[in-house]
Design a protein around this nucleic acid. Sequence first.
DNA 1: TATTGTTATACTCTATAACTATA
DNA 2: TATAGTTATAGAGTATAACAATA
Lengths: 152, 152
Amino acid sequence: MPEDRWEAALDRVLELTVLLSQDMTASLAQMGLTPARVHLLWELRSQVPCTQRALASALNVTPRAITALVDGLVETGFVTREPCPADRRATLVTLTEQGRATTQALSDEHRELARQLFAGLPDDTFDHFGAGLDHVVNRLRVLLAGPAQGLS
Amino acid sequence: MPEDRWEAALDRVLELTVLLSQDMTASLAQMGLTPARVHLLWELRSQVPCTQRALASALNVTPRAITALVDGLVETGFVTREPCPADRRATLVTLTEQGRATTQALSDEHRELARQLFAGLPDDTFDHFGAGLDHVVNRLRVLLAGPAQGLS
DNA sequence: TATTGTTATACTCTATAACTATA
DNA sequence: TATAGTTATAGAGTATAACAATA
């Protein structure tokens, strides 16, 4: 029954997602951040400054949700809101000094987490793990793209 | 620089968690369910009937959160609340007919998802993928257990 | 008329704290 | 006194809808 092994593997993947989420959420909480706010900060890292509209598209949430996230990040000092010179309807969101330092720290932690997870893994296991990961991610992309017609 | 490959692998793992979450959340929404409510239903599958206190421990949330989840599941017809004969303070939560049918359907979907993700993967790649998965999950367990003293 | 971001409102998940009914 | 579950309150994340200012 290969199906049993598949289900066991899926269970381990699901466990991995839970543990990763717990680990990251706990880390971020120590910095006064949440996953959603970090998602915004992360996007801002590569696209500064950025209108809220652009952030809404990048994070794939409604403009209203961006208003709430930016409110929180302004309150806690990670970003600032400034009027957009080119379009007076729009608002530009920019990282503060603290925001830049934080995204840098997040970047370092990301590297460190990767090291802690994968260091010590034999090369061939790591390579096959990567191949399996690619396979699964690609299958998931297909599953998410395809069933727009037939799943309901 | 093996560190770059590690970071790339971590990024793919993170992408996997996002895609999995999206896929499952979308599937569940079609049944009128959410991940948190399914978590409770899933626990109930193996421990029926179950006091709310036991559910709180199993899901690792506060009793108050269980009250809210059970409220929603009762309203939508997946479970019932009944007085516990043995302890008049306690409430037993039981799957309804609809609840049993739904957990069965979830179980089938779980198997089907596993098949869709892993079918077609060569045996040795699958095996190494499993080994890598174990490695990473174990490292994460250590990371979550250990840093109670030193991370802040 | 279309777009940007807001206010208003609502829903889910979760937490802490105070309280009731029992043990 | 301790436990099971509730109400009250709060905060985060998200959504839709109506509306303002601007394009």
